[in-house]
């Protein structure tokens, strides 16, 4: 019997479960390799050649090269791993959130200083669908 994924209806969120862990394995292993300076140096010299060391899908590889942060998550990446690629580029967690939400750094930071994103209207995908319907 399939496991019930009662968390799939949370909007704007990927829950990094065992299925995603399987799909993203090579991508995430690449990302964590950038934790070490010697690997960051090698990656910096020739990104394509460095990526040849990881058997990720063409889509995952392209998302890395494009620094398409949301696409990386859609393809099985996890934020703690992709943040290592971001760190390599000099991007911290808050700046990365500014990029992923499409808000930009200043607006995102201002939202956080004002108390963060409210849970109201942000608990269920249906609430986001309604908003899009209105727009």
């Amino acid at each position: 019997m399939a496991l019930k994924k009662d968390y799939e209806d949370i909007p704007g969120t990927f829950v990094f479960d065992a299925d995603r862990g399987r799909e993203g394995y090579q991508l995430n292993q690449f990302c964590i390799s950038l934790r070490l300076q010697k690997n960051r140096d090698t990656f910096g010299e020739n990104e394509e050649a460095y990526l040849d060391g990881y058997k990720m899908t063409d889509e995952q590889r392209q998302a890395v090269l494009d620094r398409d942060w949301n696409r990386l998550l859609e393809l099985g990446g996890n934020i703690y791993y992709t943040s290592k690629l971001a760190a390599n580029d000099g991007i911290n967690f808050q700046q990365l959130a500014g990029l992923m939400t499409g808000m930009g750094n200043d607006a995102y930071r201002a939202m956080m200083v004002a108390g963060g994103r409210s849970p109201e209207g942000n608990r269920y995908q249906s609430e986001w669908d309604d908003k899009e319907g209105d727009a």
Binding site: P11, T13, F14, N78, M100, M111, G116
Partner: peptide, 10 residues
């Protein structure tokens, strides 16, 4: 929440 489009939830 650190990730994706709902990042920043408090």
């Amino acid at each position: 929440q650190l990730q994706y489009k709902r990042a920043g939830l408090i």
